[in-house]
Write a protein that binds this DNA or RNA. Structure first.
Length: 615
RNA sequence: GGUUGUGUAGCUCAACUGGAUAGAGCACCUGACUACGAAUCAGGAGGUUUAAGGUUCGACUCCUUACACGACCA
């Protein structure tokens, strides 16, 4: 079965290798040492790249683990024997290795405290990354202007924002764009609903947010339309025909034609109503803290793309059927034949997508263009990419579909017609209210002003919601449980925020006591295992960011932020800071706390989550 | 019907891309506030990774087949 051409190397892979982060350097140095050891001990040439090295599991001593099974054939020795010999050699010849242990075919390598302290001293200055910054466009949100945003949009918005921030953190130049679907039959439906049932009300007169007002008329249209269809069907009309013949649908179609013809009255109503929706959507964006560098409006670009089809026809890459419609044959790519223009010359969805891809390329000259779109469009996106590829467009290779799974409710799928759609504005209000209630109950916020409290509740409520939606692998369909989404214990946003607030409290106290955290700590004799674990966790930051960028998965960052917070909380309960008699060690622990706070703050920022100084 | 994704503890999710005894959170049980913030920490219990085959030193991961659920294309 023919497949799509293999995509070129992921454009972000260079971020993994182009800069040597201290821990990654350590890892590759270690591989080189191992390769050298194999040569010295066994006289065999095994390149460093061939060695499988992995982090040591928690229950064993050590940091890195070499799996020796794959070496047995080449070296003609048993796995344990190999491990012993290599471990001994490393300990004797590599100053950074302080010891080793062998369990079956696993050589666990222990790293010296001096090296950990060196790693610690380098934490603040991890370099920005790419040699040649990638130019990336991330398209996300892309709402219809006939209703307010819902839970599904929230996953989309949080993902898009976060992935953009993650890519920025790797040194890419990122533009966030929003392609607003502001025309078409669904828009006419809400307009018609408004004309028939709206009594000229406005967001001001009704006291309703603009997007919700329009949504109301869209729903009203649908309800009356269903009634008409039911009526016709009862009169014996075939249901499919009834759906087309219903007067409301006929009128909506007529309105769409008028809109396309530029009918002044229709267009001016459309402007007015869309204005209300934009205002409503923008208020939601501001409330949830996402932003865009550029808005595209479908009404401006829906005619684009026809030239691309013409181009393909001229080059004989596409073909016409007898009825005059234009098609592309993608069967060689494992896809189908796909219509690109109808026989009357009008566009289909893919037509304008071809045009927009080109437009975005003209505007941004991107190396890659990411579309944050639900996985129901997987096929469509494959077609888009393959078609552009067939046209020989250089930018086709950079097109990537960040495909994410739908959000389900405990009751099942969200369905507009069954009224089970979770409204974004309402949900945001609820999580903030829950955060407020919990904060008041804890009663630890005295001294904060009313305004500071309000912004704290928002921070915590949104922190809970964003973390909840982002911690799941984007590719996977997920279940939204309202009670769990506002939880603040365990693997949650507020848990991490709490850890930050507690560190902030430590740092305030340290400042009062005059402890200087940014001293040179390399003179410390020996590290406590818990301190070592924490340093190791902190040193992993840039690797995690690179991994998240490569896989376009904020979940990786969420997991990291949680791990850091957990490692710190353990450190916090196990080791006293201010009771510590040795001033050098006390200063070190304060410094460790400060670095942890930074790691938490930075990784949470990549998720679009702010962290408080107290809560 | 065709294509495709998913299936892991009671529930929600991980598992560094083929490595050690499959890990977290919630819920349940047991401990720790007179030390720096208990939105915390330590511990216990909980698994035939949907099923059956196969590949190999080694499989949640790769390959068959079946089952369940979802999406898309007609």
């Amino acid at each position: 079965m023919p497949r799509l051409p293999a995509p070129p190397d992921a454009p972000f892979h260079q971020f993994l290798t182009s800069a040597a982060f201290p821990v990654q350097q350590l890892e590759s140095d270690l591989k080189a040492s191992l390769s050298q050891a194999i040569h010295a001990l066994f006289g065999a040439a095994v390149p460093a790249a061939q060695l499988t090295i992995q982090p040591t599991r928690k229950e064993f001593a050590g940091t890195f683990t070499l799996v020796t099974f794959p070496l047995t054939k080449a070296l003609g020795k048993g796995p344990e024997q190999i491990g012993q010999a290599l471990g001994e050699w490393l300990t004797a010849n590599d100053a950074r290795v302080s010891g080793y242990n062998v369990v079956k075919g696993f050589l666990n390598v222990e790293i010296a405290d001096a090296e950990w302290l060196r790693q610690f001293s380098l934490l603040g200055q991890q370099p920005g990354v790419a040699d040649k910054p990638q130019r990336v466009v991330v398209e996300y949100s892309s709402p219809n202007t006939n209703k307010p945003l819902h839970l599904g949009h929230l996953r989309n918005n949080f993902l898009g924002y976060s992935v953009a921030e993650i890519l920025k953190a790797t040194g890419a130049t990122v533009s966030k764009v929003n392609l607003v679907n502001d025309r078409g039959i669904h828009i006419c439906k809400s307009m018609l609903g408004y004309l028939r049932f709206g009594h000229a009300e406005t967001p001001e007169s009704a006291g309703i947010k603009g997007d919700h007002l329009i949504g109301k008329y869209y729903v009203l249209f649908e309800r009356h339309y269903r009634e008409e269809v039911a009526q016709l069907t009862a009169e014996g009309v075939d249901p499919k025909i009834a759906e087309k013949q219903a007067p409301l649908m006929q009128d909506a179609q007529q309105m769409l034609r008028q809109w396309e013809a530029g009918d002044e009255e229709v267009v001016s109503l459309w402007r007015r109503m869309n204005g209300w929706v934009y205002e409503g959507h923008n208020a939601t964006y501001a409330a949830i803290g996402v932003d865009f560098d550029k808005f595209y409006y479908e009404s401006d670009i829906y005619l684009l793309g026809k030239e691309r089809v013409e181009e393909g026809l001229q080059k004989e890459l596409f073909y016409r059927k007898d009825d005059g419609s234009a098609w592309v044959d993608l069967t060689a790519d494992g896809l189908d034949e796909k219509i690109l223009l109808r026989s009357d010359g009008t566009s289909v969805y893919i037509t304008q997508d071809l045009g927009t891809a080109e437009l975005k390329y003209q505007d941004f000259g991107y190396d890659s263009s990411i579309y944050v779109i639900a996985d129901e469009q997987n096929y469509h996106m494959q077609v888009l990419k393959a078609t552009l590829h067939k046209l020989g467009k250089p930018y086709a290779a950079g097109i990537q579909h960040l495909s994410y799974g739908m959000v389900d409710l405990p009751s099942g799928k969200m369905k507009t017609r069954e009224g089970t759609v979770v409204d974004a504005d309402e949900l945001v209000r609820e999580v903030i209210a829950a955060a407020k209630a919990a904060t008041l109950e804890k009663g630890k916020t005295e001294g904060l002003t009313e305004a500071e409290l309000e912004s704290l509740y928002e921070m915590l409520g949104l922190g809970a919601l964003k973390y909840y939606l982002l911690k799941v692998d984007p590719k996977k369909r997920m279940l939204f449980n309202p009670e769990e989404s506002v939880r603040l214990e365990g693997d949650t946003g507020p848990f991490i925020q709490y850890s930050h607030a507690r560190i902030a409290s430590i740092l305030r106290k340290a400042a009062e006591e005059g402890v200087v955290p940014d001293a040179d700590h390399t003179g410390l004799s020996e590290l406590h295992p818990t301190e070592r674990d924490l340093i190791q966790e902190l040193a992993g930051y840039s690797k995690v960011v690179a991994e998240a960028a490569r896989t376009q998965s904020p979940a990786v960052v969420a997991q990291y932020a949680y791990d850091v917070a957990k490692a710190y909380n353990r450190f916090y309960t196990e080791l006293p800071i201010f009771v510590e008699p040795d001033p050098a060690r006390k200063a070190f622990r304060v410094a460790l706390s400060a670095q942890t706070a930074q790691a938490i703050k930075a990784s949470m920022a990549l998720l679009g989550i702010n962290v408080p100084e107290r809560m």
